[in-house]
């Protein structure tokens, strides 16, 4: 059992507040992704869980044990670093065996575990090599194997795929998911790549400015962003936002359309829709196409609605040219509303 509980953890570097009182629970064997732009505090949080950084306040519990005063080696964790941190003076075998030797496991057990994890990561033919003789992707595999061989309660990963090229990243992503699903470890994975987060996570914590903005399943994060930030950060292209003025209780005027919406007291809200949730038809937003970008399966059309840019992802069969006037209908069940004051979902 390795449930991780984070209670009111805060961290400041000098006058800079990197984390504001974070509360979070990560269930046993869950795959949690911390997602956010650089500088949002996600790596700091991971390093606090690892014990590489001391929190300014708050508690960290792993598997029912308070660990925030313990050094990394006593926390039952293993970590995969962004630059892999494969020891250059040791062979791949010795790298994977490093932690096992520190645990003083018998040689037989060490051999067994190294071979098993090496096989799992498809590096069994590299065991005698040194890090200098490996490609980036191979080093990455060694780093993961080294962490897995520890059979840790918790495996922490700090942007492990960000130094790989696009194709390798795709391949490793799928492999990581499979390998970690089979391990008994709870996983925390830090990334700024939303696609990576979506594809790997059981749950995603979206972070911004040292706070957790939303903590939910990938689908929920995508479909029901809890805050305007999440909607604009997740999804490529991001959500469209249009100012909505209250007409009546539950009736809002959005760029010339009258729409039913929440019965909210504010005089204005923000209407939000994802670009792929728009179809062409009668009685929608009047949009002038400005830039047309065919993407293969779809075509991304950047239009102007109410004098503001507005994106739509349309079927590539539709022939659209710059200057065309389109009428775009939002799918009613996909419309979301945000309060412009609190920036939270309504």
């Amino acid at each position: 059992m390795a449930e991780i509980i984070i209670k009111q953890v805060a961290k400041s570097f000098g006058t800079f507040q990197a984390l504001h009182s974070i509360d979070m629970t990560i269930r046993d064997r869950e795959f949690m992704v911390l997602l956010g732009a650089s500088g949002c505090g996600k790596t700091t949080l991971l390093r606090i869980i690892a014990g590489l950084e001391t929190p300014s306040q708050g508690e960290v519990w792993i598997g029912g044990r308070r660990v925030d005063h313990l050094p990394p080696r006593e926390r039952g964790i293993a970590m995969v670093f962004q630059n892999y941190a494969v020891f250059p003076h040791l062979t791949v075998f010795e790298n994977i065996a490093f932690g096992l030797r520190m645990k003083k496991l018998p040689q037989q057990e060490i051999d067994k575990r190294v071979n098993r994890t090496a096989e799992l990561m498809h590096i069994e033919q590299l065991l005698k090599r040194y890090s200098g003789q490996l490609s980036g992707g191979q080093r990455q595999r060694v780093a993961v194997a080294r962490a897995l061989a520890m059979e840790p309660d918790v495996i922490l990963m700090d942007e492990p795929l960000s130094n790989l090229d696009a194709l390798l990243r795709l391949e490793m992503r799928a492999e990581l998911k499979g390998v970690l699903a089979e391990s008994k470890s709870t996983a925390i994975y830090v990334t700024h790549d939303q696609v990576e987060a979506m594809s790997l996570a059981d749950r995603i914590s979206v972070m911004n400015g040292g706070k957790i903005v939303q903590n939910a399943s990938p689908v929920e994060i995508y479909r029901d962003p809890a805050a305007r930030f999440v909607g604009s950060f997740i999804g490529n292209p991001p959500m469209n936002f249009i100012k909505a003025n209250r007409q009546d209780i539950g009736r809002w005027r959005v760029a010339g359309l009258d729409l039913y919406g929440p019965s909210h007291g504010a005089s204005s809200l923000e209407f939000a829709i994802r670009p792929e949730d728009l179809t062409i038809g009668e009685g929608g937003f009047i949009a002038t196409a400005r830039v047309v970008e065919p993407l293969g399966a779809h075509t991304l059309v950047t239009c102007e609605v109410d004098g503001k840019p507005f994106r739509a992802v349309l079927d590539s069969d539709l022939k659209v040219a710059p200057g065309d006037v389109l009428t775009l209908i939002p799918k009613p069940d996909r419309i979301r509303w945000f309060d412009p004051e609190t920036l939270l979902a309504v």
């Binding site: 670093f81 020891f87 250059p88 003076h89 490093f98 520190m102």
Partner: peptide
Amino acid sequence: IPIELEEAAWTLGCNRLQAFIKVVMPL
């Protein structure tokens, strides 16, 4: 010597001194 090498050694069961002797010294 990247600090991550030492940090990796800490997460793999070393204290500061052990990490220094086993990782930093040889390098």
